[in-house]
């Protein structure tokens, strides 16, 4: 590792210090096109569109803050915010706990690659596939889940049709798909904790449980924080599972923000309002990420 991080303004000597500007420009050209056209330009255009009224067919009309005013008074928007937050809390809460348990178990019981592969398998299939499989497993009449409940003498549950259940169900379906991935991220973090710490604790007679709470958890904190931030950002963007299983129903009880944005744009061709909703989602994400970063102190480590 002897590549300098920054370049000296003037080439010194030897073949390596040659100025490569021409070749470099050639090499970053395709990526820069992608960056400007498909990342930065949409950012600008999205903000601009949120100040317009536009149905695609007629030219966009500047309406100032009208979309944002409409948004603040839109009960469906606030419901979508509430539903999305509920989804994120259940999804992330369960996922982090299960993944942490899985990661610690993998570290303490078996580090076999086969085991880790099995755990990661759900992550390989699409959200659509995961959603459809659980739509079938949890079907009210025929699904094995409800048949199991019925055979135990319990009431069947409308996992995808009951307002009280639907968000929990969708959140748990996505826990199924992502828990292995999250567990592997945490597992990698656990590898960074030196064995000597555990050995010292064992010599002092600490139990497994004690070691988990006094060593593993505190030393894992920065990585736990990062994983939390990554997962929450992903979680807020939930769309596929909802679109495939309930399409927002019953009665808006699973109409998450992303679905509402999609409905406004492609159902009602209300691109201005949909853009304003996107900006709102972006702002929520930025605030949540910033808060998490501060609270978990993800940037600092307690190792050393």
């Amino acid at each position: 590792m002897s590549v300098p991080k920054t370049i000296h303004p003037l080439p010194v000597s030897g073949p390596r210090q040659k100025d490569d500007t021409k070749i470099a420009l050639l090499f970053i050209l395709p990526a820069s096109i992608g960056l400007v056209i498909f990342y930065f330009w949409p950012l600008v255009r999205g903000v601009w569109l949120s100040f317009t009224s536009w149905d695609i067919l007629t030219p966009a009309r500047f309406v100032g803050l009208a979309n944002y005013q409409q948004m603040l008074q839109d009960p469906v928007f606030w419901n979508a915010v509430r539903v999305t937050l509920l989804y994120v809390v259940i999804n992330i809460g369960v996922q982090i706990v299960v993944a942490l348990v899985l990661a610690v178990l993998m570290q303490r019981l078996s580090r076999s690659v086969i085991l880790r592969s099995v755990v990661l398998a759900p992550y390989m299939v699409s959200n659509v596939v995961a959603a459809l499989v659980f739509l079938w497993i949890l079907d009210f009449q025929l699904g094995i889940g409800n048949q199991l409940l019925a055979s135990m003498g319990l009431d069947r549950i409308g996992f995808f049709t009951n307002e009280a259940w639907v968000i929990t169900t969708i959140a748990l379906v996505n826990v199924w798909r992502h828990m292995g991935y999250t567990a592997l991220l945490l597992f990698a973090g656990l590898q960074a904790i030196p064995d000597t710490v555990y050995e010292a604790a064992r010599v002092d007679g600490a139990s497994e449980l004690r070691m988990f709470f006094s060593i593993t958890l505190p030393l894992l904190r920065p990585i736990l924080g990062l994983v939390l931030i990554i997962s929450v950002i992903g979680s807020f963007q939930v769309f596929d599972t909802v679109a495939v299983t309930t399409n927002g129903g019953p009665v808006d009880s699973s109409r998450v923000l992303q679905l509402y944005i999609y409905d406004n744009a492609f159902g009602q061709f209300n691109f201005g309002y949909a853009s304003a909703l996107s900006v709102a989602l972006l702002v929520i994400l930025l605030v949540v990420t910033f808060l998490q970063y501060r609270v978990t102190r993800a940037g600092q480590t307690d190792l050393n």
């Binding site: 990342y39 330009w41 950012l43 949909a274 972006l282």
Partner: peptide, 18 residues
Amino acid sequence: SLMVPLIYTLLPNFLLIR
């Protein structure tokens, strides 16, 4: 660009593709 959530770029990108 890592900070831009993918979901946010979808609508404007759709319009560009259109």
